[in-house]
Amino acid sequence: MRPMLATAADAPPRGPEWVHEVKWDGMRVLVDVRGGRVVVTSRTERDVTAAFPELDGLAGTYDDLLLDGEVVAMDEGRPSFHALTERMHVTQRRKAETLAATRPVTLIVFDLLRLFEQDLTGQPWTTRRRLLEELDLTGRSWQVPEVHDDGDVLLRVTDEQGLEGVVSKRRSARYLTGRRSPDWRKVAHRRTYSVLVGGWRPEAGSGASSADRLGAVLVGLPDGEGGWRYAGRVGSGLAGAAGEALLRRLRPLESDTPPFADEVPRIDASGATWVRPALVVEVRTLMLTADHRLRQPTYLGVRHDLTPAELQEVEDGG
């Protein structure tokens, strides 16, 4: 089962038929609680239960639940996708438990899809929300956030607090599994971008060892026509283990030609190894310039929960 998705918007919708929530910088998951067992799946239906042992305690809350939410990791009091990256790819239970002690995650629960074997997806958002609140799901590793009536105010507050943005939901909306709907609308402050990796360059320096170390990746964004527009070179954040891990993922993807529809500037293309358009990463940037270049981008981590095809869909807003 895949979660319902929101369409992109320039501003929160207004009117009493809408409610507004904080947009969290984390990993979207569905959490299935049934018969004393918890199963956590990503938006691409990958089983990620082992990565988040903190959520095991949900097994002791109710006999049958299906929750929609976002797993977040905090850094200096704010959700941080970069902080989450070391957790989201872990498949070994013991390693996840060790990481949970120093980098715990929290499940932000914002929807209830099943309760006591009753499918709630056909019910309006107001009904699902009322039932969710009645469950009183408050724990050390999970919480149900507040909702707000004024989207404009929430957008301003999230900007001031350095949060990702706002998601607005129509109160009467049913839950459309696996579909993107205008009944859910998202407005992001766009401090971070999901981008496609189209190539990489070795670390600058002399000697053979530098040629085997990742210095920068060349990335792109959807061009609106099903292809990829070159968006710049990302080198910050790739030192040490982060760069080594990313390079291991890129080597099997090597290609003879770049995946970008437009020409990569010679200064960036020099010495590049091109790769097939198969890997999405998250970057933080000051801004996206008028010519669609990332300004001073920093690598945050691999988007294990987002494929290139889904990135095209997200950017198209469809």
Rank of each mutant, 00 (worst) to 15 (best):
W125C: 05
L113H: 04
W24H: 11
D223P: 05
E310A: 15
R248P: 10
E160H: 07
L65H: 05
E133I: 04
V153N: 00
L246K: 09
D152P: 02
S206E: 13
K23T: 05
S181A: 08
H82A: 15
E244W: 01
A96G: 10
A96R: 04
V105Y: 00
L286A: 15
G237H: 08
T41G: 00
L112F: 04
L107R: 05
E244G: 15
S270K: 12
T285P: 02
A73V: 07
E117W: 04
E164A: 06
W184T: 03
R191A: 14
G151E: 08
G165Q: 06
L112R: 01
Y230C: 08
D316S: 15
L84V: 01
P252I: 02
E263F: 03
V72A: 03
V187R: 10
R171A: 13
L288R: 08
V22L: 14
G240Q: 10
D316Q: 14
L214G: 09
L132A: 11
V33K: 04
L154T: 04
D64E: 10
D64H: 13
L311S: 07
L55R: 00
R179P: 02
H304S: 15
T158E: 08
E97P: 00
L286W: 09
E310L: 15
L246D: 10
Q92P: 00
T273F: 09
T98K: 13
L163P: 04
M1W: 07
L107S: 12
G139I: 03
R201W: 00
V275Y: 06
R2N: 12
G178M: 01
P124Q: 03
R213P: 03
H148C: 02
G317I: 01
Y175L: 03
V166K: 07
V264H: 05
S210L: 02
T102G: 05
H20S: 12
P104C: 12
E117G: 09
G232P: 00
V48M: 09
P182F: 12
G122T: 00
R129V: 01
F81R: 03
R266C: 06
A216R: 02
L30Y: 00
Q143E: 14
A309T: 14
L218N: 08
E254S: 13
Q118W: 05
A8G: 07
R78I: 03
E54R: 01
K169M: 02
R37N: 06
P12F: 08
P182V: 00
S270C: 04
D136N: 13
E134A: 15
L247E: 11
A245H: 12
A309F: 11
R93N: 05
D10G: 15
P258N: 14
T61N: 00
T289K: 07
P222N: 08
A50Y: 02
A96D: 10
L67P: 05
T307P: 02
A272G: 11
L113W: 02
L221F: 11
L135D: 10
W228G: 10
G227M: 09
D316C: 07
D119K: 01
